Amino acid sequence: MVRTPLTPWERQRGERLGALLREARGERSMVEVAARAGLSAETLRKIETGRAPTPAFFTITALASALGLSTDALADACVEGLDAAVAEPMTA
């Protein structure tokens, strides 16, 4: 199965997600937070750096729980202020 390339808006959203998670992690180590979420530190590193801009739903919910974040607030913050001009309508 061929994966559809990400749009610029999707890449921006992924970068924002990574920055928000990195900020929420604060002084805690990447290893500590990843272990608490049941993930590898490398997975968290990829998300935080934007190299994995579309992580799975359950990965995000595990990270949100480990960091004490609301998934609704996290989702809203990921798109807040992003350039709507680069958003492309989804096609079926």
Score class of each variant (00 low, 15 high):
S29P: 08
A66H: 01
T61I: 15
A66E: 04
G68P: 09
V33G: 03
A34I: 02
L67K: 02
A37I: 09
G18A: 04
I47G: 03
L67S: 06
T61P: 03
L21E: 00
Q12W: 01
F58C: 09
K46Q: 14
T4G: 00
E32R: 07
G50C: 04
S65A: 14
I47E: 05
E32Q: 12
F57E: 13
A56Q: 15
P8F: 02
A34P: 02
P53W: 01
L39I: 03
E10D: 11
R36P: 01
A56R: 15
L67E: 05
L17C: 07
T7K: 06
R16W: 03
R16T: 13
R51A: 14
A66K: 01
S65I: 00
A62F: 02
A62I: 05
R25G: 10
A19R: 12
T61Y: 12
K46E: 14
E32H: 05
A41R: 14
M30Q: 15
P8H: 05
G50L: 03
R11V: 14
L44I: 11
W9L: 05
L20R: 07
T61V: 15
A37S: 07
F57P: 07
E48Q: 11
F57S: 15
E15H: 12
A35H: 10
M30E: 09
L67I: 07
A56W: 12
V33A: 06
G26V: 02
G18K: 00
A56I: 00
A62Q: 04
T59H: 02
A64C: 10
E27K: 12
A52R: 15
G38D: 09
L44K: 07
S40C: 04
L21D: 01
S40F: 09
P5N: 06
I47M: 09
L20I: 04
A52N: 15
R11Q: 13
A52P: 00
P53M: 05
A66Q: 01
V31W: 11
A35L: 12
T43P: 06
G18Y: 01
F57T: 13
G18D: 01
L20Y: 00
R16D: 05
G18S: 04
A35Y: 01
R13C: 11
G68L: 11
T49Q: 11
G26N: 10
E27V: 12
L20F: 00
A41P: 05
A41L: 03
I60V: 15
Q12H: 11
E10T: 01
R16V: 03
E23S: 15
G50T: 02
L63T: 09
F57R: 15
E42Y: 14
A37M: 07
A24G: 07
S29Y: 04
P5W: 00
R11K: 13
A66R: 02
M30I: 10
R51L: 11
R11S: 05
R28M: 10
L21Q: 02
I60F: 04
E10K: 10
E15I: 11
T54Y: 01
L44P: 10
L6V: 07
T54W: 02
E48K: 06
Q12E: 15
A19I: 00
A66T: 03
L63D: 04
T43D: 10
E42D: 13
E32L: 09
L20P: 06
E32P: 00
S29C: 10
R51G: 08
L39D: 08
